[in-house]
Design a protein around this nucleic acid. Sequence first.
DNA 1: CAATTGACTTTTT
DNA 2: GAAAAAGCCAATT
Length: 115
Amino acid sequence: MSEPTAEFRHRVLELVRQIPPGRVMTYGQVARYAGFPGRARQVGFVLHSLLPASGEIPWQRVINAQGGISTYRVGVGELQRALLVHEGVEFNPSGRCDLERFGWRPEVDEGALGL
DNA sequence: CAATTGACTTTTT
DNA sequence: GAAAAAGCCAATT
């Protein structure tokens, strides 16, 4: 049985849990790979629901399509950025990171940054 | 039940 | 690059 909402939530969390350290996904990508294209906003809503205790879910690895942090509005922006930097993600002076390098695709899943 | 809001994205000015 | 608009949909007021 799967109400769209529960199913969506479940798939999003399962997918986010699989993002390796030092890699990131955008809300739109998460929604798309979870099988619900266009629900980027809902992804943010689901992740917001598990704050402040994220448990097993690395919520900090989900950022916006511009490579920037979207969580300053909910007060965990600095934390998220610190966690990502600690994992090796580099941010530009503009506060954005290079999605070509740090973006993670489940289908690729190499684990090695193209350095 | 209608209106508003929100961890978004994409396209167009 | 910034701003506006349209699309998306669940939760809140």
